[in-house]
Design a protein around this nucleic acid. Sequence first.
DNA 1: TCAAGCAAGTCAAACGATTGTCTAACGAGC
DNA 2: GCTCGTTAGACAATCGTTTGACTTGCTTGA
Lengths: 343, 343
Amino acid sequence: MPSRPSRERAAKVTLNDVAMVAGVDRSVVSRVINGDPNLSVRQETRQRVLDAIDRLGYRPNAAARSLRTARAYMFGLVIPDFANPVYAEIIKGAERAAGNLGYGLMTASSGGVQLGLAHHLALLGQGRVDGLLFAGEETGHELEQLRTSAVPWLLVNRRIEGSRRYVVLDDERGSGLAVEHMVALGHRRIAHLAGPEGADTARRRRAGYTAAMTEAGLNPDPRHVVHADYTSDGGAAAMTALLRIEPRPTAVVVANVASAVGALHTLHEAGLSVPGDLSVIAIHDMPLAGHLVPALTTVRMPLGRLGERALELLATSNLTDDITEVVTEPVDVVVRASTAPPR
Amino acid sequence: MPSRPSRERAAKVTLNDVAMVAGVDRSVVSRVINGDPNLSVRQETRQRVLDAIDRLGYRPNAAARSLRTARAYMFGLVIPDFANPVYAEIIKGAERAAGNLGYGLMTASSGGVQLGLAHHLALLGQGRVDGLLFAGEETGHELEQLRTSAVPWLLVNRRIEGSRRYVVLDDERGSGLAVEHMVALGHRRIAHLAGPEGADTARRRRAGYTAAMTEAGLNPDPRHVVHADYTSDGGAAAMTALLRIEPRPTAVVVANVASAVGALHTLHEAGLSVPGDLSVIAIHDMPLAGHLVPALTTVRMPLGRLGERALELLATSNLTDDITEVVTEPVDVVVRASTAPPR
DNA sequence: TCAAGCAAGTCAAACGATTGTCTAACGAGC
DNA sequence: GCTCGTTAGACAATCGTTTGACTTGCTTGA
């Protein structure tokens, strides 16, 4: 009868221990575990090995395995801030893709600890992960360090000057659709509450806004573009600034949901009705949007797919390959209650 | 002049390579890097070593180091869902604490991939991390597996039957304060929009609600306690149910912010005013709360401190120690616009 | 002059797993 | 009875670091 009884101590059990108990060489145990096709064993021996593993509660040592095989079966993802729900979607997508490939994914944030990229590279060094995804706010200067690193890396959701390894979304199209939605409703004075001036995503969304305005035959008033920092506070402040402009815009395309939350709050405080006095649309969709007051119309971007694709590319690329991909999957407008024709 | 020029290839550089270039034994390089006090070396030699490291772009191999020292200088944290902002605060706290101790923290989610704890244990096995924090939704059954694991672990923000290793917040006090706030405003029919029935945090918050109601001489109507699942959708549905009760409560203590978002939305749809018709307070504070419409009164709980403390305890505990700590740090009411005296 | 002491390193054995190469035993075929 | 081919597993090198023990050549004190 196979030994079902409780496994033993939590002490360190190695391949050698298992081999002793099973009465075989440790190489046999290793091959049994890994299903090595070169191994031939009797069924009975194999069972002895499996029983020993079970009874001792053996767990392979990841460090030893990584050292020997030069693979960690683990990828890393560095994001700026866990509180930003945009990254949650990206992480989920990347985790899904990693799981499908039989890998794990570990995420760390660069924002909290002010130690920067160098810290992460030191920690993640070699041997800990097989590749690194950066969805962060690293400067070009910091990325310089990546060049001397032996682990494959890839920028997610942002490009950086001089880098030829990135995956991004079609942000131009995202804000373009937002503008088109407003235009279709009959708006002509459409403002843009943009992201931080330095950010690549903000730049691309702004470009999409401008292009779509021009395409619609509207000449965007330069005062109608204000920058915020992708936070609720920033969005609130920027909206306050927008409200001072005469004539006031009748619609605003907000660069992300967090800013839109702040913007809606400002409008409420100012006694303005949405969408009565002003229509609001934001880039990126997420569950929160549907529950805001009023429910927020958004442009749904394939953030999960972005994370997924980034990981796939990372897993299959050489360190020296160029990777410059735009994930164009579905981008569409989710119409809710915050947009309507102008009065 | 020290060699400033560009570092070289991204190929694999080992301690041996550095030793060759510097003309010393690899043990010297190792000791220089790690600041071994037993080493005595001439300043000039040390500099040769440092130059070689710099020139070759050497980065220590984490796997080899972990294998040899049996320490990974890395902790792991498993959460159920990155989209839940409550965990963001916990993660940040834990990352901070890890950084202070010279460790890294890697976070993974258990929810996305439906592989469960076993998968994570296999991946994180031995040698990859020095300890594991679980802020998740593991069942007691799953935790059984932890018992055979050699890596120290700790439950965060939840207890589980039979486990003596956890850190939690004072959730009783949190919802107690919420009730007291409502009572102080003059409310008497105070409902509780609770969390999922099975969840430990929900149970404790509910207990705090009941105790505070009793303490205030109010006999809580059992129909005034409804359960939701900590999501916006759940909160919306539960609020709908609450509104059907006669006489209607004048105040509601919501178990978390996500549910409160859904609840506010339901109230808005129902044409009820907050706080005019109903006052709303939620457990946990976060930036979003201040920007909702209306701005949400909350009970601020020290989530960051919880993560921080959990990591500290994990780092300093033996696998066999009991750890049963309640983080009681500041818990206070953040008054915003969603609560007022009853009409 | 000699031993002791110190400075400046060197040597080599681990850590735990993987994997290419070997070997012993056995049965089949002639 | 002998060779050959399999089967079933054993052997041992290796991955890159760390670290206790050891060596070598000087200096110093008596």
